[in-house]
């Protein structure tokens, strides 16, 4: 695995306030990581440095060999796919189809590829029957998926998702994360910002905890959720399965996912084993 993103000594200022105070981060190609932390910690700011939307006031951000200081955001469009928190800031076309095609047109992807890309992006997010609809006639949840579809159509190497499931119900959230998961399986690097800890515990492999502009922790996902002190310090919620395991004094392997299913499985075998 090679290094795809390298951030060194990143400082970021906005309106004379320093938001990021020296971030060092290295992301390999194909990783699936989550960025968490309280509001105001600088998560969105950090994301915006990944495609050159924001330039460092100090330090460097190198994505796939390109220094973000040297190029504008549009140059990174095919490399870094960015899903914004508010889909309404992105949607601009009169039909879902045109919306998904927007990026294809502007990044100069060959015309004959458009139809297939639009079809597959919309199908994967359950939007096939809405292709001719006006995005603004759809619910907020569907609009969020439309925005995501238009980013996916570009087949970027890195997919940056800023609260992608915030407007979704359980089914929609599952759909989106399954898509992200399968993209990750075929090599796309995923960077996720979310407040939904359950989601992160299920889909991400690495968690970076950002507090007040600094990296508080950078660990494997399960190690993160086991550390109650860290979660409290970062103002994050603890997870049910972890709480229960801890209360019951059950230990798990460091990298074993802790979900209701795995916990119940372990309990089941403990109980069954004890009976023989």
């Amino acid at each position: 695995m090679n290094e795809l993103i390298r951030i060194q000594g990143l400082h970021s200022r906005m309106n004379s306030v320093e938001i990021l105070k020296g971030i060092d981060l290295s992301v390999n190609s194909g990783e699936s990581l989550a960025l968490v932390g309280p509001n105001g910690a600088g998560k969105t700011t950090l994301l915006r440095h990944l495609n050159g939307l924001l330039k460092p006031s100090a330090g460097t951000v190198i994505v796939d060999g390109m220094d973000t200081r040297r190029a504008g955001a549009s140059r990174f469009a095919r490399l870094v796919g960015f899903l914004f928190q508010n889909p309404d800031h992105q949607i601009i076309a009169g039909s879902v189809r045109a919306e998904i095609e927007f990026g294809l047109v502007h990044t100069g992807i060959a015309r004959d590829e458009h139809r297939d890309r639009v079809a597959s992006a919309s199908a994967s997010l359950g939007l096939s029957k809405y292709l001719d609809a006006d995005p603004f006639s759809l619910s907020r949840a569907l609009r969020q998926r439309v925005a995501l579809a238009s980013v996916l159509a570009l087949s970027p190497k890195v997919l940056v998702l800023d609260e992608p499931t915030s407007s979704q119900d359980e089914r929609g959230a599952e759909l989106i994360m399954k898509v992200a998961e399968s993209l990750n399986a075929s090599g796309t690097t995923i960077i996720l910002v979310s407040h939904d800890m359950e989601l992160i515990a299920r889909f991400s492999k690495r968690v970076i905890v950002l507090v007040e502009g600094e990296v508080e922790a950078d660990r494997e996902v399960h190690a993160t959720f086991r550390d109650e002190r860290l979660l409290m310090k970062a103002g994050l919620s603890t997870l049910g399965a972890y709480r229960m395991a801890s209360a019951l004094g059950i230990a798990f392997e460091k990298s074993q996912p802790l979900t209701a299913a795995t916990l119940a499985g372990r309990l089941g075998s403990m109980l069954a084993g004890a009976n023989t």
Binding site: S74, F102, S150
Partner: peptide, 18 residues
């Protein structure tokens, strides 16, 4: 302000606003 945000979002999709 919204215009600014939209231009940013579109730039991320390749629109050469810069």
């Amino acid at each position: 302000e919204r215009m600014g945000k939209v231009m940013q979002a579109e730039a991320c999709r390749g629109y050469r606003a810069d």
